[in-house]
Design a protein around this nucleic acid. Structure first.
Length: 579
RNA sequence: CGGGGCGUAGCGCAGUUUGGUAGCGCGUUUGGUUCGGGACCAAAAGGUCGUGGGUUCAAAUCCCGUCGCCCCGACCA
């Protein structure tokens, strides 16, 4: 490809806060069409095709069979699993000409079960996995971050079917390994797997693959010592309570206007971790109250709360009513309709400050083990916090980090096969619902994540395995006949040798050409100019500056092909063996 | 869905307070001079001022509606 022919413009000025969005917009990779909806230009499509190729190879390697599900589906398919009603407005629905309800696919468990049903009626077909690479539409309430969080995107989604939990787990591990290979091959071996909350997908075990970065939207809990890694949504919260030797009596103290934890603690000379607070939520379904008592410095993890209650909740809207309950240790009689829960952070705590069930008063000397009923149940509902105890090794302190979710794997169980009546006959002729797993990777998000991880202030530094072109030739002074001829010759020779080459043949100034080249981010750059030709050489540099050398003109094609090979091998060094 | 902001040339913006000939920078086209990190000179093209209505002699500007985009929050497979 010649830059003079390439569709797309590069821009000099910054256009977005998130670097991948900024660089990919400035570099002419994409153009926004609407909120969370983008068109991709040739460089981005080339990257996307290469990522898709890696995905296909790795899915095929774990015995996947590529299929294609429809984007538009009838409501009846989604009604058969119950999700037509359980999924909210993030699924885009519409009616066809006859008035029938339709929707755009946001995931394809239903379609996968529909396809597999009846054609996998005997245990002898199992296990098997089907996957597709296709467009999804999710009507996100708030798209942001360029390709990181969009409404329409390309996704690789895979669905496996098994006759036993053991078999699913074995396959799950293979897929886990395949994912590690995918990220390594795409040039970001830094991606880590974390335990995650399964959310509405159902099922028990699930992992998310995360790229650690400050702009990530997920919060992660990591133990740097033992390797414990979990999404904040799923992370256990363990805080230490050192019991005081002397237990003070429960005493009511006048605290006046002081209401917040900070104010009360300041007034009474206490610390947040020596206090107890109540947080009030309401169930979405009937607005009934849920009170959670936690240690003063511990936040409520709403995901864990939702999972425990098996009901969606929202922070209490009615502030007056909420205040009435908040901060009191004996709220049951105040609000009999409320569900009252005690967080594990209170277990073993002593001499706390807490609300006294009376306006302008607080208790001191509150010791849950003494002052609450003996049968009080303490549940883990807290948000893990930096410095807290690692739930795995129980020795070290956890860290809180941010990450982008670049993929996930779920053990789904029989949730869909049962609901949709998919069965197979086992050895004894019994009809059994197969067990499922599902495995997703967003292609565009992966591309943006690589950009996020691999760039400098001038542009992306694409790993050679997914770079839009492997080599860019910068022909400085393309108006010079000799430069033009040599650049063109090198372009032909490299292309013939199988390299993917971008030739900048425009008669623009050097600075302009180099800036554009930085935005293209090709791993290998060749510079030909009257100056280099005067010495009978071309300049060879890598985008990451690790290689910089002059090469004699006639040796250039061979050396460049060799360098490409070396860069590829470097990527493969970090790719683990497949299972 | 709540709060805030913005829609004027391909891109970025000024002009709106106080109504009166549509502006600037970048980019584009043509010609010339330059030439190793976003060069310079000259000329030119390019806009239903998001959109619908209203007020007015007169609306980018004032009023009402509507659509779209951005940011914060809620939400999120």
């Amino acid at each position: 490809m010649k830059v003079s022919q390439l569709l797309g413009e590069r821009y000099k000025d910054r256009v977005a806060d998130i670097e991948s969005q900024n660089l990919m917009t400035r570099g002419g990779y994409m153009k926004q069409v609407g909120n969370g909806i983008y068109s991709l230009l040739p460089p981005a499509v080339r990257i996307q095709r290469k990522i898709e190729r890696i995905l296909r190879e790795e899915m095929d390697r774990i015995d996947g069979q590529e299929v294609l599900f429809p984007v538009t589906m009838p409501a009846s398919l989604w009604q058969s699993s119950g999700r037509w009603d359980s999924i909210g407005s993030e699924m885009l629905r519409f009616k066809d000409r006859s008035g029938a309800d339709m929707c755009l696919g946001m995931t394809h468990e239903e379609a996968a079960v529909h396809m597999a049903n009846n054609i996998a009626g005997t245990y002898q077909k199992y296990p098997f996995m089907i996957y597709q690479i296709q467009t999804k539409f999710r009507d996100e309430p708030r798209a942001r971050g360029g390709l990181i969080r969009v409404r329409e995107f390309t996704m690789k989604d895979a669905y496996s079917f098994h006759t036993s939990q053991e078999d699913l787990e074995k396959y799950y591990d293979r897929c886990y390994r395949a994912y590690e290979r995918i990220y390594a091959r795409a040039g970001i071996p830094e991606v880590i797997a974390v335990k995650s909350d399964s959310g509405m997908m159902g099922g028990k075990v699930s992992h998310e693959f995360m790229l650690l970065t400050d702009i990530g939207e997920d919060t992660l809990v990591i133990c740097p010592e033992c390797g414990y890694r979990a999404n904040m949504e799923a992370a256990e919260c363990i805080v230490k309570n050192e019991a005081d030797e002397v237990l003070k009596p429960l005493t009511s103290v006048y605290t006046g206007e002081a209401k917040t934890i900070e104010d009360v603690c300041l007034l009474l000379g206490s610390k947040a971790e020596k206090s107890c607070k109540a947080v009030v939520y309401q169930r979405n379904e009937d607005d009934s109250y849920v009170l959670i008592f936690t240690r003063g410095d511990v936040e409520v993890n709403e995901t864990k709360l939702t999972n425990y209650l098996k009901a969606a909740v929202h922070p209490a809207l009615d502030i007056e009513n909420a205040n009435l309950c908040a901060g009191n240790i004996g709220p049951v009689e105040l609000s009999t309709k409320a569900t009252v829960l005690f967080d594990r952070s209170l277990q073993g705590a002593t001499n706390l400050v807490c609300g006294a069930n009376k306006e302008a008063y607080h208790f001191t000397g509150f010791t849950p083990g003494r002052d609450l009923p003996a049968d009080t149940v303490y549940i883990d509902l807290g948000k893990a916090q930096s410095g807290g105890e690692c739930p795995s090794c129980h020795k070290h302190s956890i860290q809180i980090r941010r990450g982008i979710e670049v993929g996930n794997i779920f053990q789904l169980g029989r949730r869909y096969t049962e609901a949709m009546g998919m069965t197979y006959d086992d050895e004894n002729g019994n009809r059994i619902n197969p067990i499922m797993g599902c495995y997703g990777i967003g292609v565009g998000r992966l591309m943006a994540s690589v950009c996020e991880e691999k760039h400098d202030q001038y542009g992306p530094i694409w790993p050679i395995t997914i770079a839009p072109w492997e080599v860019q030739i910068c022909a400085l002074r393309a108006d010079n006949p000799e430069v033009k001829a040599e650049a063109s010759k090198l372009y032909d020779e490299l292309t013939k040798a199988g390299a993917e080459v971008l030739l900048d043949d425009r008669a623009v100034s050097a600075g302009f050409m180099f800036s554009d080249a930085d935005l293209f981010g090709c791993p290998v750059r060749v510079i030909i100019s009257p100056k280099t030709l005067g010495r009978g050489v071309v300049e060879l540099v890598t985008r990451d500056k690790s290689v910089k050398e002059d090469v004699v003109l006639e040796d250039a094609p061979a050396r460049i092909v060799q360098l490409i090979q070396q860069l590829k091998e470097k990527i493969w060094e970090k790719v683990p063996a497949s299972l």
